Simulated assay, not measured.
Amino acid sequence: MKLPSGTATTTLAPANPWALVPPLGNLDAYISAVNRLPLLTHEEEQTYARQLRDNNDVDAAGRLVMSHLRLVVSIARQYLGYGLPHGDLIQEGNVGLMKAVKRFDPDQGVRLVSYAMHWIKAEIHEYILKNWRMVKVATTKAQRKLFFNLRSMKQGFKADAAAADAGTHRDTLSDHEIDSVAAQLNVKREEVIEMETRMAGGDVLLDPAPSDDGEQAFGPIAYLADASHEPTAMIESRQRDELATDGIATALASLDERSRRIVEERWLKVNDDGSGGMTLHDLAAVYGVSAERIRQIEVAAMKKMKTALADYA
């Protein structure tokens, strides 16, 4: 349609700013697309921020987010040394960017790029701390500060040593370097040593999965477990102790006098020299019967005691 002469023309912003970034494709395509997105002027940023704050305008929020996606990519690239996927770092940074856009106040006199950097880094930091190791290595504020600064400071110390041609290549910090880190980051010396130890360590599975051939792999859980204080083992041990004392006494009480003496002399008495009690022949001589008869009486007594012990348990 041809406009009448003298009619002013204006450039309209895309109806859907999200369509500028391809929904599918590899990470390189995404980075290339967000780097081509136009930046907002200060006036446009203020306008969209007020529309979002006053009218909850989702399209205005989308334009604010889209214009700062390249900032997230740039910040995420700084954390590639932690061994986590670049795409995941960007994704977490985008979450921080959206939080910053939601909380941004245009009347504070600060550009969104400066305000958003804190939120982007905060989300990326939290993601790294949760996923860098199976066990979280930093929980307090001082530990988090050490985690994100200690490695770069160690690299600086190594560079200084190389420049000075010190001839030593240490993986750990010296006492002087520990004091220097503690002073620069305003933390305790012991916290520096503890964080260096945590970062130098690795993850170990307490209970490793079986190997391909079906054999159970050996893990630290085998020698870390304290079976003596395991509830089931404690109950079984208590039951054994009761059977060995009160249970045996009850079972012996169920026998006649001769059978009880034969069992006691054969199994419950120990001589001074550590040897066992009386033999079958010794008891046979005492009662004037054959050794085979003593054996038969012993077997019958044992069966009766076994029944009594089962009833007692």
Rank of each mutant, 00 (worst) to 15 (best):
L3Q: 04
A8M: 13
P14I: 15
P14T: 12
A15Q: 14
N16C: 08
L20C: 02
V21L: 11
V21A: 14
G25D: 12
L27Q: 06
I31D: 13
I31L: 13
S32I: 05
L37D: 10
L40I: 04
T41N: 00
E43C: 00
T47W: 07
R53I: 09
A60M: 12
A61C: 12
L64S: 13
H68M: 13
L69C: 10
R70H: 06
R70L: 03
V73L: 01
A76M: 06
R77T: 05
L80T: 13
G83F: 04
H86M: 13
D88A: 14
I90A: 12
G93E: 15
G93Q: 10
V101Q: 07
V101I: 15
V101P: 11
F104H: 08
D107Y: 04
D107A: 04
A116G: 06
A116D: 14
A116M: 08
A122I: 03
E123T: 05
I124G: 03
I124W: 09
H125M: 02
L129R: 05
N131Y: 00
M134W: 01
M134I: 02
V135M: 05
K136T: 14
K136H: 02
V137M: 03
T140P: 05
A142I: 03
Q143N: 04
K145Q: 14
N149D: 01
L150Y: 10
Q155H: 05
G156L: 03
G156A: 09
D160F: 01
A163F: 10
A163Y: 05
A166I: 09
G167H: 01
T168G: 07
L173R: 03
S180Q: 14
S180L: 12
A182V: 05
A183K: 01
V187Q: 08
E191P: 03
M195E: 15
T197S: 07
G202D: 08
V204E: 14
V204C: 07
V204G: 09
L206Y: 06
P208H: 00
P210Y: 03
E215G: 01
E215T: 02
F218Q: 03
P220T: 00
A222E: 15
D226Y: 09
H229Y: 02
P231W: 06
A233S: 11
M234H: 04
E236R: 03
S237L: 14
Q239I: 15
R240L: 15
D241Q: 11
D241I: 11
E242K: 07
E242S: 02
L243T: 02
T245C: 06
A249H: 08
T250I: 13
L252N: 08
A253P: 01
A253Q: 14
S254V: 12
R258D: 15
V263Q: 07
E264D: 10
E264A: 10
W267M: 11
G277W: 06
A284G: 15
V286W: 01
V286A: 07
G288P: 12
A291G: 14
E292Q: 13
R293T: 14
A300E: 15
M302R: 06
K303G: 08
K304R: 12
M305K: 00
A310E: 15
A310P: 02
Y312Q: 05
Y312V: 12
